[in-house]
Design a protein around this nucleic acid. Structure first.
Lengths: 251, 251
DNA sequence: CGCGGAATTGATGTGCATCAACTCGGGTGG
DNA sequence: CCACCCGAGTTGATGCACATCAATTCCGCG
């Protein structure tokens, strides 16, 4: 969102090492020299800006990307020239794993705000995982986790109403930010209402109305792109419990 | 659906070898001795029957499963005791990859009809992939493919109307059956209307009405669980083109 | 300062869920 | 072998959540 000072190369390096560590290696103990080997294949790219593409649908698959700071959205063309937003990617999160299969990207990735992104050439990563079993296991876990997240999304789109979807979206952001040591209750949305609606399978107007309603109900404070969550437990109730005074789910 | 004769062990072995081959190794050339090593860790299970579980949500993750014959559905609990059907798995398809991350299954897998299933202990598979780079690459591709499929599902649930969803469902089945050398236009549905609706985010009644409509329009013939697709191109138009005389997609 | 896209808010329409009634087929027990 | 039963599927009537249309305001930016 802001950049108080020119970020030194060292800062990037350290931060990037951090993001590599936490995303790829945190849960498994990886020998320090292996971390070093992993670190060596990571390319640091200069800061990217709003609107820049990491890759476009159809591009040959070469690398996966890790968000260091900022945010990225991925989206695929839908029928009739429209697009489906597939995800918003925050610091520490990985982009591009879906391209391994066809060796080509089947979605596009666009930077939402000034962001620092690490690029990891997949061929080299694959060599590395061959010789480091625990890193291989990490890769399997990462891929598997992605499947799990998509499953959550299917559940959201298949079974939840508008209210539940937006509550789930906000809580999801909150938790992911918290994981990175950022405030889980006070943050800025880097994406537009339109993109949120597209992502959640809702119309812009519905998103807008729900923000207003949530605010009126004291669940949150909304000022343009600035969000303050005032009542996380209540939001959790909305998501999990299928909404108190709402229709119950089919089946 | 039927079982003309008791299947001999050899038949199972050969068929299972086939399914392992085609799912895990077909696209990459794998040395014959490596295929042998892979084949050795595959467990053959006796035929399973309608209602049997491969695993339940929460079970410790030990193996992935490959459908040899028959079909399996996977589903996760939704809010309020309901369930979300996550997928139907046909011969040659793999189940359980989503459990690697948490080392526990986060969905259940239930057999829809008498089926033969291969079990592959994941720990042993992982050992194998460490020493066979091309097999490791195959695993990455399989996991990545699964992500791509989930993405398709998100697009379907987020952007398609009832008609498009059912058309996409039928075409999907058709193509997957064809891949296994079965008829792409004449097949039996092993799942109930209820399960189809649940999977597609639709009510049973809507599914039923659409079957009737499609039949009236000459797109297909429906008799109970027996399906004949009479006009694949027309179905494809329904899916891709967002329906000729229908509302256009948002954005 | 003024333009234009983003967001909000209100009014209206509709696709599909829901409710309800009925039919069908398959399995069971007498 | 048939009568019964029960769950699955179909069909029709109604309602509602959310999309769509329309008008206005708001803010960012040149």
């Amino acid at each position: 969102m802001s950049q108080q000072k020119v970020v030194s190369l060292d800062t990037i390096r350290v931060a990037c090492r951090n993001c590599t560590l936490s995303s790829l290696c945190l849960p498994m103990g990886l020998a320090p020299e292996d971390v070093e080997r992993l670190d060596e294949i990571v390319k640091r790219t200069r800061p990217l800006h709003r609107g820049d593409f990491l890759f476009r649908e159809g591009d040959r698959f070469r690398s996966i990307y890790v968000v260091k700071t900022g945010s990225v959205k991925t989206f695929a063309p839908s029928a009739e020239g429209g697009e489906q937003v597939l995800g918003f990617h925050l610091p520490g999160e990985i982009i591009g794993l879906d391209a391994i299969d066809k060796d080509a990207h089947n979605c596009s990735a666009k930077v939402l705000e000034t962001s620092a992104i690490c690029e990891i050439p997949f061929a080299r990563l694959e060599e590395l995982t061959s010789s480091i079993p625990s890193l291989q296991h990490q890769m399997y876990r990462l891929l598997s986790k992605e499947i799990g997240q998509d499953t959550d999304m299917v559940l959201l789109l298949g079974k939840k109403n508008a209210e539940e979807r937006l509550a789930a979206f906000l809580l999801g952001l909150s938790q992911r930010l918290q994981k990175r040591g950022l405030s889980p209750t006070d943050f800025y949305l880097s994406m537009s209402r339109h993109e949120i609606g597209n992502y959640l399978g809702l119309a812009v107007e519905t998103v807008s109305r729900l923000f207003t309603r949530f605010q009126d109900d004291g669940l949150m404070r909304v000022d343009r792109k600035h969000i303050e969550l005032l009542n996380l437990p209540a939001l959790e109730t909305l998501v999990g419990g299928a909404g108190p005074s709402r229709r119950q789910q089919q089946q």
